[in-house]
Nucleic acid binder design. Sequence first.
DNA 1: AAGGCAAATGTTTTT
DNA 2: CATTTGCCTT
Length: 717
Amino acid sequence: MDVSKILDSLNPAQREAVSSDNKSLLVLAGAGSGKTRVLVHRIAWLLQVQGVPASAIMAVTFTNKAAREMRSRIGELLQLTPQGMWVGTFHGLTHRLLKTHWRDAGLPENFQILDSDDQLRMVKRLLKEHELDETRFSPKSIQWYINGHKDEGRRAKHVDHHNDPYEKTLVNIYQAYETACERSGQVDFGELLLRAHELWLKQPSILNHYQQRFQYLLVDEFQDTNTIQYAWLRVLAGNGNTITVVGDDDQSIYGWRGAKIENIQQFSEDFPGTTIVKLEQNYRSTSRILDAANAVIANNPDRLGKELWTDGERGDPIQLYAGFNEQDEARFIVERIQSHVSNDLLRSEQAILYRSNAQSRVLEEELIRAGTPYRIYGGQRFYDRLEIKNAVAYLRLAYGSDDDAAFERVVNTPTRGIGNKTVEAVRLRAREANTSMWRACLQLIEAGALTNRAATSLSKFMELINDCAEASRTLSLEEFANFVLEATDLMAFHGKETGEKGQARVENLQELVNATRQFEPEGDDSTALREFLDTAALDAGDQQADEYTDAVQLMTLHSAKGLEFPVVYLAGVEENLFPHKMSVEEPGRLEEERRLCYVGITRAMRHLYLTYAESRRWYGQESFNAVSRFVREIPDDCIEEVRINASITRPLSARLSHAAEGHDTGLVLGQRVLHSVFGEGVVLNIEGQGSNARVQVNFNQEGSKWLVAAYANLEAV
DNA sequence: AAGGCAAATGTTTTT
DNA sequence: CATTTGCCTT
């Protein structure tokens, strides 16, 4: 057998990982070290060298994009597409399991996925139903609470409320939420994992079947797994199966949404005898960039320890630019982009990264002014758009009329005289009869419990849905989609919305029809609709529009993970912004911010610019931030300050207005001060005037604090 | 049922 | 500052 193709192109560490015979393998893959390559080659190795049947392999990723990439790269390497292998996201795979074993999982056959938008609506509804004050119980925080517990594998009945009345109420809502989902056959994202895990535990024969089948598990981005995801994997791996996990503790940036970096350490404990392979050779960046990244991340405690290196060029130092405000910062970046473009770099080879989305605005304005095409990653996904959600809700109702979330969304969209009163009555009935809203409607109409007008409108609506359901059985997916958009009047409804909005919405709806045309179901026509609906729920749809134009890439640091660009501009490297001020106080969060910085630096292949603004308008307020501590962690020989040249000099007027604004505190930014209790520190920020003036001081001992200047009695040192 | 107005709110995001 | 939301009015 010719295995040279599989191993030849790899370095020693990669080879060790790819060809390991160990039952459990932990690959610590630094940024740009060929992580996906190792996964793909390892699968090829298993198939072609070890003779493992494809059907014995399961590969798990976090995003559909990663799953697709893995599949296509395996196909490329092997020149064939292995059949029977499961490659997918945690959610996709568990969903597949639950669909197969719906009965054993205690679900209705046609259960639907509740996305976070639907979930929030449901929570709001429950709060109203329970007559809870939304100011004390904010819907968002309840949603957060529920998802948090689900990610930890806890149902309402498992939550310990410590007899605390507030906590008790939360548990009650969680319980009510579970009941409501159950009643309408809906499953949220967390529930997919939770239920799939329970399926393992409750149905040993099913578990046994899958343990026998999937003797080879591979997991990508392992540092991002949460408690329930890891628990699900661990059970599936059992005692004898081969499990390979690939991850990087230094790139764990999703702790805030439940990812457990600790799972990496836990792994070697749970699977004794684990082989650990570190991939430290980087094929992406210059050594100067890597030195900077290494130096920054070295400030984090409790790392597993990795140091990136390259045998490539040293490269130029990182350029640091201090704009006098955010416009100046943006101007500098755009100017550099253009200068790189005139040196034969594509715009698409350059990316502007930032900590928070709000920063993109000024950058966009400057790009527009300069006539430079750009593309923003992230933002609202295709299937999250209002008009698309409405259309999909109709498709869902046609597929299964018990779908309450879909029912609620479109029962009166477009308006058809079914007001709040009527819907309220339907909800009440549904709750009392413990049934879906659709069935509740039938009951109410039958019992003559509604006014004539309401009954007529509801009947007409239900007839419409029945017509759609009928159409779904006879038409192709595309014809069906067209039928629904016309029959429900949705196309016209969105078309007449004000301004360009209406047009954009119509275009999106047409795009949805396109998607139905291009959709390739795995099964036959009879399952096509269900499959399409699942895709709409679990796959964001391709985020990137017009890939043809050469455009500068704008995105947050989070969405940049996994990508690389010849030139990277990291904007807003300021205290309070990056690290974000929300993250400075909570323990552990600063480390995550630093990892985010590490992620940002390591996106750059050849050139890296760090920029910040000495003054920035932020939520309508002027703020003065010091340069980010992360910048100060970069060794001197890796970074140099850009000399302010004539064209981007800070105007005198700006400097004067700065001074003239005059915070009458007698303090200056950056000044060392002494406080009677907190000791010595540095002034980071000053806000407000006179007796309202507040000062932020970073104390040597106590960290950063906001003080009212009038009472703080700060003494200049 | 739509439109107007005040109030709240504003890291990071996939599924 | 700017956008979204809920509430109130017509």
